[in-house]
Simulated scan of single mutants.
Amino acid sequence: MRVTTEPVAPAVRAPGGEPPPVAPPPRQRLHRRIRSTQWAGLAFLAPLLAYLLIFYAFPLYRNLELSVHDYTVRAFVLGNAEFTGFANYRDVLTSDTFGLALRNTLLFTFVSIAAQYAIGLALAVFFRANFRLSGVLRAMFLVPWLLPLIVSGSTWAWMLAGDNGIVNAALEAFGIGQINWLTDPDWALTSVITANIWLGIPFNLVILHAGLQNIPDELYEAAALDGANAWQQFWRVTFPLLRPVSAITLLLGLVYTLKVVDVIWIMTTGGPGNVSTTLAVWSYREAFGTGQPDFSPAATVGNLLILMALAFGFVYLQLQRRQHADQEGEQP
């Protein structure tokens, strides 16, 4: 039997006589690639995590810590505040101001967002037909939204002033007597609600108008061919298809309105008495409005306001989940 041998190629050596490096197995390379991707993802998340910790987690923790201690100005400076547990919450909930402030908060919030949404939706539908000068008029409606709130609040306080306000001057021109809009207990809350409605209409107009642009014109043409009038087209086409945008608009308006302080403080400072005091105004007054800061009750009221906002947020999420479940159930 004849045996043949194949020539063996000499091993390639790196400069210096050392053997070449051996490539790692494919599984090890895959693990390295995954680890590198994870580190890259963490690097991108790091700024967001730092932002959430610094501007959300730490202030929330600090607010909770303030509410369970007795923080006067002296204790705040020296850092020796006495631990009181839930005593601040008990004092706030049993205070004579709490019931009135809660009622004012709910009334101020729900009347404001209902009127802002209704007027904003009406204007959005009106501006959907791109008529002449519609862009200019939409831009003019944005002016209240662009102004600083201190300017808007001061303007409304001047307009509703009892002696030289422009509103009372107009009423006198029609033979109606003067109304003390900002100092009369029967009108103070109505005045600040009116000003807040005026401030929130542009936001609703912009969001709802953008949502209307996503509704195809073919649906309106089909509805018109079926004999639907303008109201039926709105109720059967516009309103149902605008429901997701309406939900997020109302939620954002709710969260924003719950924490309104500046407009009320500039116009009435929560008065006369506590007639126009909301939970947000009460919290601000305790911390900064009396000249003798009492940070613990202020933080306590603020935490109750946060709980209210979270409750409304959970209700919104539950409604959205139910809506998605109903939509999936309708699909064949």
Rank of each mutant, 00 (worst) to 15 (best):
Q232S: 13
L106Y: 04
L93N: 13
V73S: 15
A223F: 02
A23L: 14
P25L: 04
N229L: 10
S154H: 09
L45W: 12
N214A: 15
A75Y: 09
V167N: 10
I113Q: 01
I248T: 15
S191G: 03
T268Q: 08
M267T: 00
A57Y: 02
P21G: 03
S67K: 06
V3M: 05
G165W: 03
T278L: 10
L189H: 05
F55K: 04
V68M: 11
T84V: 15
Q318T: 08
I54K: 03
I54Q: 06
A75D: 13
R138D: 09
I197H: 02
F203Q: 00
Q323T: 14
V143F: 03
A139W: 00
Q323I: 07
P240T: 02
G175E: 00
G211K: 00
A228V: 00
A280P: 05
V125T: 08
Q213E: 10
V125K: 01
I179W: 06
F58G: 00
P332G: 04
F110A: 09
I207S: 01
E218Q: 10
T5R: 04
W181E: 04
D96W: 13
G17T: 02
P202E: 00
G99R: 13
F44D: 09
V261K: 10
T109S: 13
R35S: 08
L49S: 09
R90E: 15
L133S: 11
A224N: 05
W187Y: 12
V245S: 14
V245N: 09
L137C: 05
A40Y: 12
I197Y: 01
Y256E: 12
